[in-house]
Design a protein around this nucleic acid. Structure first.
Length: 277
DNA sequence: CCAGCAGCCTGAAAGC
DNA sequence: TGCTTTCAGGCTGCTG
């Protein structure tokens, strides 16, 4: 499975998973040996009260005052195995890419798979993110009123890096990754390498960030290759993409071929004609 | 404080 | 055909 979980994909997983695990007691666990995943063992004994999201992070609220913080990295995915499974939970029993498994009191199991192991699991006191710098310094939720053209412009002030790099840093706004950054910048007609964005263009960009993320959620996320969500289904947002993954194909606005560059080690697709610095 | 960048990973695709 | 190389990229942690 290849997935690229940005805010819409994580939100889709959250909505599907939440009703299946709320109120469940974690009665056992097993993890991959890496310290990226072993902290999952610390959740054993707790009850899952709620599942929320901050940017691209999933937050499992536990009844002992702690929080299980999950980041899906590039290829992470959650799945519920509903049928009763006898014996201790075992990652090895669920294929080569299972990195964590939690046994629930109803006999089911919550499974975290992650082929490339870019994901990470941690248990921290609720809301205490001192050891998770990206979460600690994360900007406002893009679909909240706290994020606006004004807040974006203020966040960019005094920074010198390219606008796309800023967006991916999670600091001006939470949850934007490579796909939706390219889409929003295309729709806002802003060159991803632009360094200075005035108040008016920040208004347009903020509006487009909200729009592409909301559309992504409405479509159940973007499916690349054989990505599947928590239900094993696939999203439909890939059919809406106008920039990401379309290098060499005609711009939907001017018809010229879209251009591809590498910006901060990330593939970046944009229109040289329509998008201005 | 900020900018820049190597490193982490593995399967798919491309190259030879 | 089969082996090797390249590519994908969110975040962390180090250096300057």
């Amino acid at each position: 499975m290849l997935i690229m979980p940005e805010l819409p994909e994580v939100e889709t997983i959250r909505r599907q998973l939440a009703p299946l695990i709320q109120g469940a007691v974690i009665v056992g666990a097993d993890t991959h040996w890496s310290s990226k995943f072993t902290p999952a063992l610390d959740a054993v004994g707790a009850t899952i009260l709620n599942l929320s999201r901050r940017g691209k992070y999933l937050l499992f609220e536990l009844d002992d005052g702690n929080e299980l913080v999950a980041h899906l990295g590039m290829t992470g995915a959650f799945q519920i195995v509903a049928q009763h499974v006898a014996g201790s939970p075992s990652c090895a029993a669920h294929g080569p890419h299972t990195r964590a498994i939690w046994a629930l009191d109803d006999g089911g199991q919550l499974i975290f798979r992650d082929i490339r192991r870019f994901g990470r699991l941690r248990v921290v006191p609720a809301g205490v993110y001192e050891d998770i710098p990206t979460l600690l310094t994360m900007g406002p939720e893009p679909l909240s009123d706290a994020f606006s053209g004004r807040s974006l412009h203020a966040a960019l002030r005094g920074r010198s890096r390219a606008i796309k790099t800023q967006l991916l840093s999670q600091r001006p706004v939470a949850g934007v990754g490579n796909i939706y950054a390219d889409e929003a910048l295309f729709n806002a007609r802003i060159d991803p390498r632009a360094h200075r964005i005035g108040p008016e263009r920040c208004e347009v960009l903020a509006s487009q960030i909200k729009a592409v993320l909301q559309t992504g959620i409405d479509n159940g996320g973007t499916t690349l290759r054989d990505y599947v969500d928590a239900r094993g289904g696939e999203g439909g947002n890939q059919h809406e993409l106008v920039a990401y993954g379309r290098a060499g194909e005609p711009c939907i606005s001017c018809g010229n071929p879209l251009h591809s560059i590498v910006l901060d080690a990330r593939t970046t697709t944009f229109c040289r004609t329509c998008q201005r610095r």
